[in-house]
Structure formats: structure tokens, C-alpha cells
Design a protein around this nucleic acid. Structure first.
Lengths: 342, 342
DNA sequence: CTGAAAGCGCTTACAG
DNA sequence: CTGAAAGCGCTTACAG
């Protein structure tokens, strides 16, 4: 078995002081005499004492832990966001439990209940919805009773939560405009899952760009997928069956775009010579893909930083004044997957 | 502030029983009478009680948490491994704290000390070395005192730890042999960081394949990088300065391979027509890259599964008999980045 | 089957 | 500046 834990009592005995004094010497060194402090420090070294954080947290009714609910950590989109979250967490004395939910409500629930169970102080929602808690119905409608939470990347409809996002409608509109400016008129859109809020926003942006340009908007020109490479491939299969093959495709994320490009290539088309493609997110591989991908850059790290800062504030003071909605800037990155048509 | 916590005492009062009975009714239902159990369950529902896991853990001297030390979560290589780890963790009642260390010893230390601090029951080492703990020198040499740990993906030299890996030497040899079988004789290797154990193993495999084939082995044909796309690009820059441009390049991982391919293309070479490239790892994007990447497939999910299973065993019984070294199979995946030379 | 009591390791008002 | 004591929320031998 593990050795018996070395406790504050062991240190106290060796230093010849009380537990209380050891605790103070460690937590608030300036409140004890220098002599005592030195005795305690020596005893800590000699015993190899390390604080039992669980006991401390139990006593203080805090945990120093924050849960990040991520639908899929294998998605490269999230890694830099998490890195931003962690940098703030480290600075503020929190640790981040990255909870991979796979969009499984049961798993979301487990991790959400960490807060109720005093295993975490707050939750970062990267999954686009509020996890349904234990008592289900009881909580809905009584939002004031929810644990500290901040949503990021995807805003959550009908819920009053601090939220950190980019303007997806605007960005999608910008991306589509770029295609239009490059002379394309037959443009289709490969979207995400039909009920997803990002799908809605980016599709709205796409449609409004077409509308502004006076181009036809056929809802049949929107193909739904699930943000994966494979769904991009499948979508291209359908696009390839149209009588008039479009000259440009706006994809709701980079992975879809890579799937579209890869399937187009297999079908004998060249990107961008035959078909131009624009992605969304600017994941790391985008600039190394072939062709390098024109896409919308999201300030991923910054999204994480701002959201975590807001969560920390929320945890430390319940009546903190946090903006409901923080919108960060995004930008169109022009690379080589789009070609001008004459 | 958060509401006062609802405790086991509140439930007990409402149910008209003692705290002890509530605890039993919840943890070992069969040991209380049915009538009592029902009263307690009703009271739990009415109060909305949820267990304070921290208090429970403090009492039981366990945490139900395991730390996975990952050098870089943004590296797609790790995501599927983590997913394997998590599937076992969920099944066994553990949660996984994914600790992104960025190879920063300080961060490794913080997370490693979670075990000492009773915040975690064990550690999964995906970073290739044992974190240096608080008391530093004290621990070295007294391995019996280390917390439960399992190393995976990278074996750790000079340390006696359960380890789950593939045979990197063999696999690298196989990959190089493939190039040789395809008629290549001028082959170079782009390796990882020079002091990394994977670098060593894969380089050894590369060299032994050359030796077996009676091909020249110039150590100047090995270019060191750091497993990133950019290091692959840089390496190709140097390769391109050789008087005799090699016809084949074995890369120590897929990201290097993608960097090499991308730089080669920019320099006017075609892969595989001019230069064949083999990667290592078979990350998700490998089969969607252009050209699709011939590479070594690592059973990533399985690596995570086996390692976590071993860790659980180690935690639950200190004298569990765990194999020192578990070697999982890998395989060469042939795609389109290699061409036969006549 | 159930309760009273001790104890996990810590912190902090309260006295002095 | 320091100590004795209470208490965070839980579980479990020990009696009954």
C-alpha cells in the first residue's frame, strides 16, 4: 500500500508547534514569526510533507478545478482554445479538467455534476448546449441556481449565459463575398449538422452574401454534413451529381473543405483550377494542405483566454458583472484554394 | 454565493434516520432494510442531494482521478490514445485529467504532485520521462516510493516502469524496407529531436534496414527536426541542397512527412513521382493528405486502453504483477506517397 | 438492521 | 504571534 500520508500534524510535531501554526506558516507566512517559519520550513523539508489539497478544498469549499466540456478532443480545432484556457487557469491557480463528452449527454452530465459534487468550481461549455443536470426539470427555469458557466465558440440559444464567440454570420458572409469577388456565380455551401447553431449562422452568412450580390439562392445548393472530413467527401459526391457543377464551394469548416478537395481530386477535378474552395476555422493543417486553404481565421487561443477569465471572475464573485456576449474579431486568410474566374 | 450545500445530514433529518444509515442506503443498498432505503431515496429526491465527492474521497483516501501527462494536446497523435484511456477510465470509475505539459518541467511537476496531494491516484506518462517530483534527489533511487505510473508510446530509459509501446525499431525497419523493395537506393531520414527515445529507435530501424540491404549508411543522411510540420519543411530545405537529391525520404512521423511533401512541392518536386515519402503514426489526416500518405499505423486507441488497464490494476493492488513491457503490433499502411523506381 | 462516535487532513475564528 | 477547538461532509468499525 501507499505509505501513510505525511500530514500537517507530523510537521507540527517535528517543529514543536501546533497544526494551526504550520498551516499559517505555509499559507500566510507573514503572520508567523520568522523563527517559527524557519522551524516549520525545516520540518517540511525533513518530512517531505505535501499538502493534501482535497482536505484543504473540503475545508475551504473550493476545488481549484474547472471543467471544460469538449465534444471531441480529437478535433484539432479545440487544442489551441484549450491552450488559451490553460494559460489563464495556471495563472489564476486553477486546473482544467478536459472532459471529452463525445456529445454523449450521460458523459456531459457526469462532468457537469462535478460542480455539484464539489469537484469543480465552474464549467466551460464548448459543446453548444447546457448539460442537463441531475434534477433535470427542477433546474430549468431557475437559472440563478446554475453553477458558474461560460459558453464559448458556440453561443447557446435561449440561455442567458456569458458567451465568447466570433461573429459567424459576418465571417461566413465575408468568405462568400470573396468567392463572389473572384467572379464565381455558381456557388454551393457544405454545412454542418442541420440543427447546429454554427451551421445556422454560417449558412445565414452564406445566403446573405448571395442575396447582397443578387445571386440565386437555392436551398438545394446547401449540403449538410457533420464537420468531418468524411462528410465533406460525401457532400462532394452529391455536388458532383448536379447538372451544372459549381465553380466554388464554401465549406462550414476546414475539415469539410479538406474532404471536399480530396473527393474532388479523386473525381478528376483540380482545386482551384476547376473548383474553388473556402474553409472556416483556420486549423493548423490548413496552411500546409494542398492546395493551401483559404479560410476564416478564428482567434482560437484568445477565445479560450477570454472565456476562462470570465469564468474565474464568475466563480470568485457571484454578482460579477460579465458581458452577456463577447464577440472577438475574425479574418479571411487568402491562400491558394480559390482562383479567379474570367 | 452558492447555496449552502445539501449534506447527508439534511437527508438524514428528512428521512428520520442517522447519517450513517443514509450513507449505507446510498453506498450499499442491500445492507439496509427496504423500508429505510425507500425513505432515504425519497428524501434524496426531495432535497436534491448529491454526494460531496471530495469529502468521500478524503475519507476513503482515494480520488477516482488519474492524470495523463501529455506533452502537447494539439498534437493529433494523442487524441485517439486519450480516447482509449478514457473509455477504460469511465468503465472503471475514474476520471482523466489531461495535463498539457508543453514539456515544461514545472508543469509536469505540478500535475505529478497531484498524486502526492491526493488529487489523483495515478499517472499516465505520455511524455517520455518521469516528472521530477518535489523532493527531487530524495525520490530518485527509491523507485518503490513512486506513485502508480504507467508509461506509454515512449518507453523511458533507465526506469523500471510498466510500459506500453509498439516496437519502433522494427516498424521503422519495415518502413525503410518498403522503400528499398520499391527500388530506392538513395534514401534519407528526417528524424525527431536528437535526444528523444523515439528518434533513436526509429533511426536505428532505418539504419538496420539499410545495412540489411547492403546500402550505404551515411550519418549525414539523417536530418533532425522536432516532429512538427515546420521541421519537416526545414529538413527538406537541407535535403534539397545535397548534390544527389534522394529519391526517397523516411520521416519519423506523419507531420514531418507532410512538411517534407509540402516543401518538396513548393520546390518543384512531385511526390511520389520525383520523391517517395513514408511517414510514421498514421494520424487521421494521413489518408486524406495529398498524396495519401504511406505510413506506419500505430494502434493508438489500444495503447491507451492497455496502459489505463494496467494503471487501474496498479492502483488497486500495490503488488499487482504487471508486465514491465507490453509491445503492441503495428503495421505498414501502403498508400500513394511511394512510387516504384525502375 | 441501525445509531453514536471517531476520524480523514485541513483552516480559521476565538482567546490569550 | 500562537494554541485549542470546532467543523468541512463523509464512512465505518463497534455496539447494540
Amino acid at each position: 500500500m501507499r505509505n501513510r500520508n505525511i500530514t500537517i500534524g507530523d510537521v507540527a510535531r517535528l517543529a514543536g508547534v501546533s497544526n494551526a501554526t504550520v498551516s499559517r506558516a505555509l499559507q500566510k507566512p507573514d503572520v508567523v514569526s520568522e523563527k517559527t517559519r524557519e522551524k516549520v520550513n525545516a520540518a517540511v523539508l525533513e518530512t517531505g510533507y505535501t499538502q493534501n489539497v482535497m482536505a484543504r478544498n473540503l475545508r475551504l469549499d473550493r476545488t481549484g478545478m474547472v471543467v471544460a466540456l469538449v465534444p471531441d478532443i480529437s478535433n484539432p480545432f479545440f487544442s489551441e482554445i484549450l491552450s488559451g484556457i490553460e494559460s489563464v487557469a495556471t495563472r489564476e491557480g486553477y486546473n482544467v479538467l478536459i472532459a471529452n463528452t463525445n456529445n454523449d449527454p450521460a458523459r456531459e452530465h457526469i462532468y457537469a455534476s462535478y460542480v455539484q459534487s464539489n469537484l469543480a468550481d465552474g464549467i466551460l461549455l464548448l459543446n453548444g448546449h447546457v448539460p442537463v443536470p441531475n434534477g433535470a426539470q427542477k433546474i430549468i427555469g431557475d437559472m440563478s441556481n446554475l453553477p458558474p458557466m461560460v459558453a464559448l465558440c458556440e453561443r447557446i440559444p435561449n440561455v442567458d449565459l456569458p458567451t465568447v464567440v466570433i461573429d459567424n454570420v459576418d465571417a461566413a458572409c465575408l468568405a462568400t463575398q470573396h468567392l463572389i469577388e473572384m467572379g464565381h456565380t455558381n456557388i454551393v455551401h457544405v454545412a454542418g449538422p442541420i440543427d447546429n447553431i454554427l451551421t445556422k449562422d454560417r449558412r445565414d452568412g452564406f445566403l446573405s452574401a448571395l442575396e447582397n450580390a443578387g445571386l440565386a439562392q437555392n436551398l438545394s445548393d446547401i449540403f449538410y454534413g457533420d464537420f468531418t472530413i468524411n462528410s465533406g467527401k460525401q457532400a462532394f459526391g452529391k455536388i458532383n451529381q448536379k447538372e451544372a457543377i459549381p465553380t466554388a464551394i464554401f465549406c462550414a469548416n476546414d475539415e469539410i473543405a479538406m474532404g471536399v478537395i480530396s473527393a474532388a481530386r479523386e473525381a478528376g477535378f483540380s482545386v482551384p483550377d476547376d473548383i474553388s474552395v473556402v474553409g472556416f476555422d483556420d486549423i493548423e493543417i490548413a496552411e500546409h494542405y494542398y492546395p493551401t486553404l483559404t479560410t476564416i481565421h478564428q482567434p482560437r487561443r484568445q477565445l479560450g483566454v477570454v472565456a476562462m477569465e470570465q469564468l474565474v471572475e464568475l466563480i470568485s464573485s457571484a454578482d460579477a458583472k460579465i458581458a452577456d456576449l463577447t464577440t472577438l474579431g475574425s479574418q479571411l486568410i487568402i491562400r491558394k484554394s480559390v482562383k479567379k474566374v474570367e
